[in-house]
Design a protein around this nucleic acid. Structure first.
Length: 154
DNA sequence: GCCAACGTTGGC
DNA sequence: GCCAACGTTGGC
């Protein structure tokens, strides 16, 4: 099993939107970065755990945990002309972009702020905390995941 | 709103 | 293949 961190802008799609989705499950569409695409397409498996990160705003934070409900599959928004994620280079026959389905497991009672996470020993190497890392899909180590869940549930 | 960091594009 | 220009991300 792998562990991930997915970034989202809560104004666009928050963990609360995920909670309101049918069966608390939604597709994670619109990833338009090749490195992130490759991970979604090649490395995700059903059951993988996903930290949901809210970027932007006054207090960016890890808001909760979800699981992969459907592993990487072509992002149909990429050939939907009406979608803001439309890409003329992508087609059903030759999809350029991929997405996954995620199902909410838990909203953290107290979201873990970025500032707070920087204080935590054992997370110093975490991708999220490294300068200049803009990837919206990031692998997380088993140890980092365990530390974060323990902090949030305490 | 600023700006650092990084990705993408396109001319050559 | 190099690299300048430009666009995007995202914390602050």
């Amino acid at each position: 099993m792998k562990y991930w961190l997915f970034k989202t802008e809560p104004d666009v799609f928050s963990i609360h939107d995920l909670a309101k989705s049918p069966a608390k499950t939604a597709c994670w569409e619109g990833v338009r970065n090749y490195q992130a695409r490759n991970m979604l397409r090649d490395e995700t498996k059903v059951g993988d755990r996903v930290l949901i990160y809210h970027s932007g705003g006054t207090s960016p934070c890890i808001a909760g945990v979800a699981s992969i409900a459907k592993a990487g599959y072509p992002d149909s928004h990429s050939w939907d002309r009406k979608s803001k994620y439309y890409d003329s280079a992508s087609s059903p026959e030759n999809p350029r972009w991929y997405m996954v389905d995620v199902r909410l497991d838990q909203i953290f009672p107290c979201p873990l702020t970025l500032a707070g996470l920087r204080e935590v020993k054992g997370l110093a190497e975490m991708g999220l905390l490294r300068k200049g890392n803009r990837l919206s899909i990031q692998p997380v180590t088993k140890g980092e995941f365990a530390i974060i869940v323990k902090l949030a549930v305490k």
